[in-house]
Structure formats: structure tokens, C-alpha cells
Amino acid sequence: MERQDYERLRWRCIRRALLELDITLTRFLDDGFDQLTEEEQAAFVDLVALEDHDLWYLISGKEECNEDEARFVPVVEKLRKCSVRLAG
């Protein structure tokens, strides 16, 4: 990813409406994002464009991706694992 695209993405991850997302997404950018495939990185960019509550419910496992959000599934799984792995 080009520097400018990454920095734009970073801003959109570290300045959210919800604190939970600020923390989770900042952590994922530091430890997880680099390991995504190009396709997954593109999905991540679209994923973080979701409304804050919708995104947080997906990451915290309160909700699952819809059928039309199938490409988000691997990224959401990694976001969930990233949280738990770092926690352990």
C-alpha cells in the first residue's frame, strides 16, 4: 500500500467515534495489518468505512457479517484473533 493510502487509512482507524474501535484498530494496524493479503487489505479499507457501532458489533462477536459482506469474514476473524492473541 502506498504511504499516503496507508496514512489515510491509519487516520480513519485511530480517530473513531468509539474508544473501543480506536484501541482495537490501532493495535491491528501495528500488529496484524501487514500480514493481510492485498485482497484482505482492500477489504479492511472498506470494513473500517462501516458505521462505528456496526463495526464494533462485528469485531466483538455480537454480530456476524451479512451474506453480502462475505469478503469481510477473514479480516473480521483476524481482528478478533488479534485482540485475543495479544490479550493472552
Partner: peptide, 12 residues
């Protein structure tokens, strides 16, 4: 706004 309006902290 530093962010898209509906991403302001009022959302919380």
C-alpha cells in the same frame, strides 16, 4: 471536521 461527521464522538 477531523473526521466524517457521523464518526464524531456524539455517536458514543
Amino acid at each position: 471536521s477531523k473526521v466524517f461527521p457521523t464518526r464524531s464522538h456524539t455517536v458514543a
